[in-house]
Amino acid sequence: MTYDKRPEGRKFDELRPIVAKAGVIPNAEGSAYFKIGKTVAYAAVYGPRELHPKFLQNPEKGVLRCLYNMMPFAGMGDRVRPGPNRRAKEISLVTEKAILPFINLDRYPNAVVDVFIELTQTDAGSRCAGICAAAIALADAGIEMREMISAVAVGKVADKIVVDLDYSEEIYEDGHVADIPIAMGNVSQQITLLQADGYITREDLKKCLEIAKKACAQINEIQKKALKQKYEGSK
């Protein structure tokens, strides 16, 4: 079987249309909106602020807490049951681990930086959209970041290597699908998130990583623009 046409006539290495905005939630220290195709993520950063309960505090550096949450109406089919489920907890954890290596919280001992990621609408690639939004929100909140973090899903649908899978591709039935979300910094291109659903050969994985690098560079430009727009808009 060959996979020769993507939905909406996208090229195999083409991202879905992206809209990014910084500073959308006035009460948060920093916030962002990130829309990729039909997936919409909002991120809000609060803090650094005091961390309670006290036993969670780290006297050497600040703590990062991420919360990934899909809203009840955000799914593609049935209502998503609200509250933390196994999947949401896992994604919260991997998001935290994807972001932490690139931010510096040394100046905030015993404090916490909270990142809340809410998804109002999803069409696959939600953890990547969440990470992209969180990165913009953290920069907007004035947190020291060594690099900007961008994330994208790459994979293989039947015989083709594709970037930024949507839901119809994730559930493609006429061939095997591999779905690999990747997050990386824009300078060193160090990878901090690499999960895989389905199986893929070593050669194909290498190709996927190459294509992900290019896609992340594109996303990084959009993130940069979103931040500059907020502050230069009124200039």
Binding site: E29, R49, A141, G142, R146, V187
Partner: peptide, 24 residues
């Protein structure tokens, strides 16, 4: 030389420093 904060850049002779625009 890479920026690690959001802010306005000051080119002061050879030194590059950032005046932050946000943050607690």
């Amino acid at each position: 030389i890479i920026a690690s904060r959001l802010g306005l850049i000051n080119v002061d002779g050879r030194a590059l420093k950032i005046t932050p625009l946000s943050g607690k």
